[in-house]
Design a protein around this nucleic acid. Structure first.
Lengths: 183, 183
DNA sequence: TATACTTTTCAGTAGTGACGGAAATTTCGG
DNA sequence: CCGAAATTTCCGTCACTACTGAAAAGTATA
């Protein structure tokens, strides 16, 4: 099996994107490859197709499995581990969001809470800083709360929300104090 | 002027976060500093407070200005340029989103369109890959469309949407074909 | 226009993280 | 239980990016 030109381009682009989002290139490429691959692949073949070392593939696969967007699968008559990616884009997106929330948002909230508390005891020079940190904390909390609410829904419902941007905009855009409701 | 402990912690954390999101540490730190600083700062002082070289600060400030989340300001009686960050968190968030959409989502859509088109001409081995790329394309388009709709709204409306996660979840979560309406 | 002050650019350096290869470990078939 | 196959781990190397210091360019004032 060889890579088609379309697959190649996608994989390279995904690698670049990964970097821009703080994910290492090979890892993103492995994910891209598994995402478009019709069948599960073994590490050896991934190594060959992407032209990276076997060990690098091993590391990337482990990371991807930690994230939960790649799974180890087995086929009878083959001793080698094979791997496949989540094939559902929305599902993949959700898993990544959940993980990033856990790794980044939650610790950020904890730190901001700590900083705000600390700044409360400080002298008046801290006042402005504290206000800003509070605003940042409120915002971060708002985002994560919104996310938690939305994340409870099954995929089809999520899809409905994301295709209803205009509707939502109309509903919430028209509620400013002195404005009349559009609907 | 010296940094308070709370400010220091926040700046360091923001630097880490930046890295996780593909933004260089110093740049994120400069932004964090300007965000919590009561007054505008000149490059020299930023350099001193963060203990990085003057030139590094210069580069970071230029980048931040390109992003549009830091502005050059002047005070009478001071020849030096001074800088201040957007102080509104939501506004900052919006600017960053807009920029990332422009830099990452739009090119991704273009590339996916190209790949899908190319895969259409290909032989049957491409079929599965093409399907996957189409799904990815649809999803990306859905997200950016949603974003564009939402982004048109003024900040207070946006805030309303984000505080109404539960409400939105109820509205869109209850429409699944065979499910009864929750409320 | 000259001079002092400020900012930017640039080229070299350093530091970090990705990567490859080999060795060690694990797994499975005989 | 042994040997082969597969996987993981580890450490040295490499590449890339961030960073610094110095030189150049720009700018305002006298």
């Amino acid at each position: 099996m060889e890579l088609t030109p379309a697959a190649k381009k996608f994989i390279l682009h995904w690698g670049e994107m990964g970097q821009a989002w703080g994910i290492n290139r090979t890892m993103a490429q492995v994910h891209a490859l598994l995402f478009v691959a019709p069948d599960s692949l073994d590490a050896e073949e991934i190594s060959r197709l992407l032209d990276v070392s076997r060990s690098n593939v091993s590391t990337s696969l482990r990371e991807l499995m930690t994230w939960g967007i790649v799974k180890r699968v087995h086929v009878i008559g083959d001793r080698r581990d094979r791997f496949e990616a989540l094939k559902d884009v929305m599902e993949t997106f959700r898993v990544i969001m959940a993980e990033r929330k856990r790794r980044e948002m939650d610790p950020t909230i904890a730190l901001l809470e700590h900083c705000v508390e600390e700044a409360e005891g400080g002298d008046s020079r801290d006042d402005y800083t504290r206000e800003q940190l509070e605003k940042m904390l409120d915002f971060t909390r708002m985002l994560t709360t919104w996310y938690s609410q939305i994340d409870r829904l099954p995929t089809p419902a999520l899809r409905r929300i994301f295709t209803a941007g205009a509707k939502i905009a109309r509903m919430f855009g028209a509620q400013a104090p002195q404005e009349a409701n559009v609907n």
